[in-house]
Amino acid sequence: MKIVDLTHLIKEGMPVFPGTEPPVLEAANTLEKDGFREKKLHMYSHTGTHMDAPAHMIAQGWTLDQVPASAFFGPAAKLDARGLQRIEKHHLESLIKPETEFLILWTGWDQFWGSESYFGAFPTLSPEAAKWLSGLPLKGVGVDAISIDPMDSVNFEVHLELLGSDKVIIENLKGLDQLPEHFLFSAMPLKLEDADGSPVRAFALVDHDLSTNC
């Protein structure tokens, strides 16, 4: 079994969603002064590779600390969405199997991480595709872009559709080119109180027999 890390490094000056602030990693204690090292972290809950809880945009939505860790792990299917403008229902229908719990959208956009192009016109789900996904028993949908909605969205239609159906959204994934079409996926958030979102350490387990009970 191979573990593939799908997580961007959190560091000062990293890309963040427009209107938010990049993280500040402050040296709170040092070896020279205190005999141990410790950092003070100042960052938004949706920094870097992160997870959106339903509570991010849904008034009565649940927070990440309200569900078990099993909600963040399971069999996944990867769609090669490179070159598409909109991801439609017909792109997804044959991909998602009865055992699929996560859909991962490979746009290839992580190649632009750290440049202005990262905030460009990456492939996104159409409203119709998002509505269809909302009716499936998935745990979540992930993407290797800054958002699951287009950058010019003002109503966050895809977010609202998915979060409103009790699914999580994982954004800013990386390295999806290393994955097969089906694999095991994990994205574990920090167990923060009242967590509308959290940075995650996302990874995939590949070369695993998905026919076994996970």
Rank of each mutant, 00 (worst) to 15 (best):
P150W: 06
I148R: 00
L160D: 08
E161L: 01
E161M: 11
I169T: 11
D166H: 02
S147N: 00
V154K: 09
E157W: 06
D149N: 05
G164Q: 02
S147V: 12
F156W: 11
L160E: 15
G175E: 12
A145K: 07
S153M: 01
A145N: 13
G175S: 08
D144E: 12
H159G: 08
I170S: 04
V158K: 11
S147G: 02
I169E: 14
L176I: 01
N155K: 09
S147L: 14
S153W: 13
L162Y: 02
S165M: 07
V168G: 04
D166N: 07
A145M: 06
K174V: 02
K167V: 07
G175N: 12
F156C: 12
E157T: 11
D144K: 06
S147M: 12
N155A: 15
L160F: 03
E171A: 13
E161Q: 12
L162C: 01
F156Y: 08
N172W: 14
L160T: 14
I169Q: 02
I148E: 10
E161N: 11
V154H: 00
V158L: 13
N155W: 02
M151P: 03
S153F: 06
S147T: 05
V158P: 02
L162P: 04
K174H: 04
D166S: 09
V168F: 09
H159K: 10
L162M: 06
K174E: 13
K174M: 15
D166F: 01
N155P: 00
I169R: 04
P150G: 03
N172D: 01
Q178S: 06
I146A: 08
L163C: 04
M151C: 15
N155D: 08
I169Y: 10
L162G: 09
D144N: 05
L173P: 03
S147K: 14
L160N: 14
D149C: 10
L176T: 03
G175P: 03
I170P: 12
P150M: 05
H159A: 10
K167A: 06
E171T: 09
M151Q: 15
D177S: 02
K174D: 09
E161S: 14
E161W: 02
V168Q: 00
E157C: 13
I170Q: 07
G164H: 12
L173N: 12
L163K: 05
V168S: 04
S153R: 11
G175C: 09
V168L: 08
E157G: 07
I148Y: 04
N172C: 11
D152Y: 13
L163G: 05
L160M: 08
E161C: 07
D144R: 00
L176W: 00
I170R: 15
I169S: 11
S153D: 02
V154N: 07
G164N: 03
S147E: 08
E157Q: 10
Q178R: 00
L162E: 10
V158I: 13
I148G: 01
V158F: 03
Q178F: 10
S147W: 00
